[in-house]
């Protein structure tokens, strides 16, 4: 009777996969630990280049200041100038921080900021949309705010009614300090309005300083 082949090991494939996964894990761990060690060894000193040798140094490395009696004084003056520079830089940073704090303190309690929004060109009877961001730069969190708009007015007095302007979302959630919200503005242009640029503003209840200029170009 011929010898039968041994029964295939049903787990052999799984073992092979696990072996490759283990190899991946171990190789990756080796590479990352080597990189971390390299980072520790590569920490730079205060200067990345060797400072030039002191031309007044003697053969034993001691400076021969007696050859140039004014040198110590010049070095001392240089050190003092550098210290003053650092002190000045420190004071400037302090003043910058104080100025920033004062600006925040003196600003409106809930000041909103936003970009300018330009839409169009679009034809009368059409519709046009655009996205923009509203940012609250400072002030306390506010209650949910509803977006509104003024009428959009052209130079000849033609207007687009605020009812033609829609927002998504129409109501902003609670606005935290230094947060931002993207909005989509859609304007349905009435039939028969005169071509040209129309201007107006987007406002929000609860954010009295928020005023986003809007410009829409109506084409012929």
């Amino acid at each position: 009777m011929a010898d039968r082949d041994p029964a295939p090991d049903p787990l052999a494939g799984l073992r092979a996969m696990a072996e490759v996964q283990r190899a991946g894990l171990e190789a990756a761990a080796t590479v990352v630990e080597r990189m971390l060690e390299l980072g520790r060894l590569g920490t730079r000193g205060p200067f990345p280049f060797p400072l030039p040798a002191d031309p007044t140094a003697g053969s034993n490395g001691e400076r021969r200041s007696e050859d140039d009696p004014g040198r110590d004084m010049r070095r001392l003056r240089g050190d003092a100038e550098r210290m003053l520079e650092l002190w000045g830089e420190w004071m400037r940073l302090l003043l910058d921080a104080a100025a920033d704090s004062a600006e925040v303190a003196l600003g409106p309690p809930s000041r909103g900021a936003a970009d300018r929004l330009s839409l169009g060109p679009a034809k009368p009877g059409g519709s046009v949309s655009g996205r923009t961001w509203l940012h609250v730069l400072d002030g306390p969190p506010t209650a949910p705010a509803r977006l509104t708009a003024t009428a959009l007015t052209a130079a000849d007095g033609s207007t687009i009614d605020p009812g033609a302007i829609a927002f998504e979302p129409a109501v902003l959630g609670t606005f935290d300090l230094r947060s931002s919200q993207e909005i989509v503005v859609t304007v349905d242009l009435p039939e028969g309005i005169a071509p040209g640029p129309y201007h107006g503003h987007i406002l929000a209840t609860g954010l009295p300083e928020l005023s986003l200029p809007v410009r829409i170009e109506v084409s012929a």
Partner: peptide, 13 residues
């Protein structure tokens, strides 16, 4: 298949 399994091992790490 080797690359996929190798990647799975790294994902476990």
């Amino acid at each position: 298949e080797f690359a996929r399994e190798f990647g799975l091992g790294i994902a476990a790490a």
